[in-house]
Amino acid sequence: MSRPLMTTVAAACALALPAAAHSRPVTIATTLENYGGDGAYLAVYLTDAQGAYARTLWVAGGKAKYYTHLSGWNRLSSGDSKRLQGVTGASVGQGRTLRVTADLADALIDAGYEIRIDAAVEDMRDSPAEIRVPLSAANAGKPHAGRQYIQSFSFELQ
């Protein structure tokens, strides 16, 4: 291999590796109770240390007319025109587990950010911010119970 080409490859690696190290995959598992109703709409999102909206990680449930029932997320994320881009899926049936894998910047971990989940089920009571768990390394792997529809919630940092 010629010297200029090797230099270019080495420079590219040096630039790419730190960029790759700045984020890590996070897997969020949410298991629902057997609450005796239709599939639940869930919004999984991040808020910063001040409680301001940071990013939507997943929205389970495809009909926009029901998003008003995910009231915390709907209110906080209303200014984000890309909040639904590539992050929507089916509603989650009772007793089932939603597993969301997202890539999060290292700077978000142990920096006061929270993972929040709003939940809503047709003809049942809405449950905004049913889960509020700080995004910290110490919380990783620990199960948390919800108030109404969520039996358990945990996240893993890889």
Binding site: A20, T27, A60, G89, A90, G93, R96, T101
Partner: peptide, 29 residues
Amino acid sequence: TQGGDASPRSGDGDAAPPAPGATPHGSIE
């Protein structure tokens, strides 16, 4: 897929970690 309104990325059962910079991925088990 369950619910009938799933995107094809949802409900496919695997939970492989995405490449850095990839968009989130959801699956129902």
